[in-house]
Amino acid sequence: MPILKLSLRAWRASPGSQVGASLISSALLLCVALLLCLELSIQSARGRVERENRVTVFLAPGGGPDSEMQVTDRIVQSLGAHAETPVHSKFVSIADTMAFLREKHPELHAELRDLGQEGEALVPRAVHLTASFDEGRLGEAVSQVKKIQGVDSVDSTESRAAAVGPAIRGLQWLLRLLTLGVVAAWILGWMALARSHAASLSGIAGPLRLWGAGPWTARAPGILAGLWVGLPAGAIAAVAYAFLARPALQKLATSSALFEASAIPGVSGVLVLVMTSAVAGIASGALSGSAEA
């Protein structure tokens, strides 16, 4: 009980600065958490952009709906054998293409319609496929698809990420630098608080050591004093994350296709914030104790 009382000396002497330290620490911690979440989201998006490819397979004219289905199945199976991720496919029929042309290019649509059967033979039927491929495997997959009976031609987007990849990498490095800066500011804040606590608790560790107390008993008031700032800071950061930051990240994930696969931590994120802040408080307390000793 006396140790607990001693550990609250800083709160009694200057409650405003302790509250301020908790708020600033929680804000910095929340910033770090947000930046890390964004960085992880971008990492996953970059992976997708760099490895995901779109393959468009144009079917040869002729053949009914049954034939279209069979050819599409064979294409999906052939690509699936080479792909790292499940293959997503979308069949675009003549009717779909005509509907698109009617909306976007009504004159062309009218000309094709006027040609009758001959015009339908000119309208392409295609299967759009999306999947991730290891380096070099896409070319192999495309050449296999070309051999399937009923396939007219194949287009792929092998170099799709060539322009976007470096831009995303640049953004990632910028985020990492920002994270490092905020972490450095957060650590420096804790070091300053450790010094302030050491000054506030001066004259406690010395007598305790001379009375024969162990090193951790002598540091206990400082460690608890750090914890009394770290715990509220972690709790504030956790609440802010749960009610502000997490919904914002979820909105970002739903509104942008790029971030749709982002993993946004829930309860685990809240716990990590509280624990990190508490550990920082304890570490700063141990530091303030050793400074005095």
Binding site: P2, R9, P207, W211, G212
Partner: peptide, 30 residues
């Protein structure tokens, strides 16, 4: 150190604690 008690010339008690707590803390630390 646990076997030694010192009565210093310049006494510095822990000002946040009561008289009883100051004494009991010294005893517990020993």
């Amino acid at each position: 150190r646990r076997s030694i008690s010192t009565i210093p010339q310049r006494v510095q008690l822990l000002s946040d604690l009561t008289v009883f707590e100051n004494i009991s803390m010294a005893a517990r630390a020993a």
